[in-house]
């Protein structure tokens, strides 16, 4: 227990941890601020302005249509061929779209509907904090190895696995506390954005429960990625091993693989890419579509092939990755000499 408390103190004392957490929170704050600035509440004034704008668009369309019909009639009178402008045989067929085609909603300014727009922001939140967690997790143990801190600690606490697991527990505790606080602030901030720059209506207990579960999945994702960063850095005994490894993985095994899969004409290339599973984990389900396939639809035309990736499949992948990384880190911690 003393080691656990000490490791929590060590984690909190590290400048890198503080700076990265602060940077992550600042970026999140900037996203909230931009959402606040770019949205506005819809009232009678905005609706009236939108109706005026729709009416103006309609009037412009009428003028344009009238001009086009006049040109058509002039061309017919001169006996010109249809030409590149493609006038119809009967110029009277040229008529303006109906007024209802110009929906005033299209002219409304952007507004934040908490009920509809909040869930997608949680994907950004999870992705950003997962990156922060990965870097902090990797640096936390990598710097310990690199500066000799781990060796010093092992002279005091020779049970290597206990030391590594206690460090991991302290890291995950710290990350969980920061993430839970951040997600609470994130929710409150976007609720305020909705309140002042949109709407917070339609919020039932079921919607809140759904948001809560999505937030829980976001926290789990952040913790899992943090643990993977920790494990990989511990495996290589250096922060750069994890950061370089992650970079290489995304460049070679994700971008490179995506290109190869496209060239090979694989049916669902996104099914081989990790971000798809991250999205599926957050959204509960992602449906991939193959537009090269044509399935007859009941109403005629083609429907693409579809492949659903569920959060359960993502959880298996996440668990396998976590177990492999942590298992390898623990095995090397136990077996390799500390030289």
């Amino acid at each position: 227990m003393s080691l656990y408390r000490t490791e929590l103190r060590r984690l909190g004392k590290r400048r890198f941890t503080r700076y990265m957490a602060l940077l992550g929170l600042l970026v999140l704050g900037a996203i909230v601020a931009s959402a606040f600035v770019t949205n506005q509440k819809i009232g009678a004034e905005q609706v009236a302005a939108a109706e005026r704008a729709a009416q103006a668009h309609y009037q412009q369309a009428v003028r344009d249509t009238d001009g086009f019909r006049a040109e058509c009639e002039k061309a017919k009178a001169a006996g010109e061929a249809p030409g590149p402008r493609g006038f119809p045989d009967d110029c009277s067929q040229i008529s303006p779209p109906p007024p209802e085609a110009f929906d005033p909603k299209w002219s409304l300014p952007s507004t934040f509907r908490f009920h509809d727009d909040f869930a997608p922001t949680l994907e950004t939140f999870a992705a950003l904090l997962a990156v922060v967690g990965f870097v902090v997790g990797a640096s936390y143990v990598g710097a310990e190895w690199n500066t000799g801190g781990m060796m010093n600690l092992l002279l005091w606490r020779p049970k290597r696995l206990n030391v590594l697991l206690t460090k991991l527990a302290a890291l995950l505790t710290g990350t969980a506390v920061v993430t839970v606080l951040a997600v609470a602030l994130w929710t409150a901030a976007f609720w305020l954005v909705g309140h002042f720059r949109g709407t917070t209506t339609e919020m039932t207990a079921g919607v809140w429960r759904s948001f809560g579960l999505t937030e829980l999945r976001a926290v789990v994702l952040v913790l899992a990625v943090t643990a993977v960063g920790f494990a990989v850095a511990s495996l290589g005994r250096h922060t750069a091993f994890a950061l370089g490894g992650a970079m290489a993985f995304f460049v070679v095994a994700q971008v490179g693989l995506a290109i190869v899969l496209q060239l090979a004409g694989v049916r669902f290339p996104d099914a081989w890419l990790l971000p798809t599973y991250g999205l599926a984990w957050m959204r509960k389900e992602v449906t991939l579509e193959n537009y090269d396939a044509c399935n007859a639809s009941p109403t005629g035309g083609c429907l693409p092939d579809q492949l659903s990736i569920t959060w359960q499949q993502s959880s298996v992948l996440l668990a396998v990755g976590l177990v492999l990384a942590l298992g390898a880190a623990l095995w090397t911690m136990r077996r390799r000499d500390v030289a």
């Binding site: 003393s2 080691l3 408390r5 000490t6 490791e7 103190r9 060590r10 004392k13 590290r14 400048r15 710097a143 310990e144 500066t147 000799g148 801190g149 060796m151 010093n152 600690l153 002279l155 005091w156 606490r157």
Partner: peptide
């Protein structure tokens, strides 16, 4: 053992404090 190695951004007191905490 060999050359002394410590986390460079901690003070000497922090370094010893953390070791004391870990070793009770």
């Amino acid at each position: 053992v060999e050359s002394p190695q410590f986390f460079p951004h901690f003070t000497a007191r922090d370094t010893l404090d953390l070791l004391a905490g870990a070793g009770e």
